[in-house]
Structure formats: C-alpha cells, structure tokens
C-alpha cells in the first residue's frame, strides 16, 4: 500500500499497519512523538490499536526538550 508520511509518499508492505509498527519500521528514534492520521490526533495510548491504511496521510513530529 502507499501512504503519505510527513508529506512524502511511502510504500508499506501489507494492507494495514498500526501507528506503533510504522514508527518502529521507519526508525523514528526520538522518544517523544506526536502522531496524526488524516489530520486527526492519535494519542500515545492509541498508537498500538490505530491502523494506517492505503492512501492515509500520517504526520509524525518529534518533541524536543528545552525551553
């Protein structure tokens, strides 16, 4: 399937993937991330159960300490 991850097209194996799996597969190494699917927030506790499907737009932003 094809998804859009942070505005870039990405080919992902299979028909669906959880947000957590996608984060692991794409090696987002920062501990603190905020995620959205199709513009809607997916909270930390929902990442294991929320699935990304063909054509979805996924945004992953890492939050950085300091301030």
């Amino acid at each position: 399937m094809q998804i859009f991850l942070n505005n870039r097209p990405e080919q992902i194996e299979g028909d669906e993937i959880t947000i957590s799996e996608l984060i692991r597969q794409k090696n987002f190494t920062f501990k603190l991330l905020v995620t959205k699917i199709n513009g809607k927030l997916v909270r930390v506790g929902e990442r294991d159960t929320t699935r990304v499907r063909n054509g979805d737009t996924v945004e992953v932003m890492h939050l950085i300490s300091g301030g």
Partner: peptide, 18 residues
Amino acid sequence: EAFDQAAEKQMLLEAMLV
C-alpha cells in the same frame, strides 16, 4: 507552551488538541 521537558510538551499538545 514554554515547558522544558519534551514529555510535558507532548502532554500539553495532546490535551490542547483534544
């Protein structure tokens, strides 16, 4: 948002969006 720790930034962003 003017926190120091990323975990607090994440908490506040999610809390605001929800």
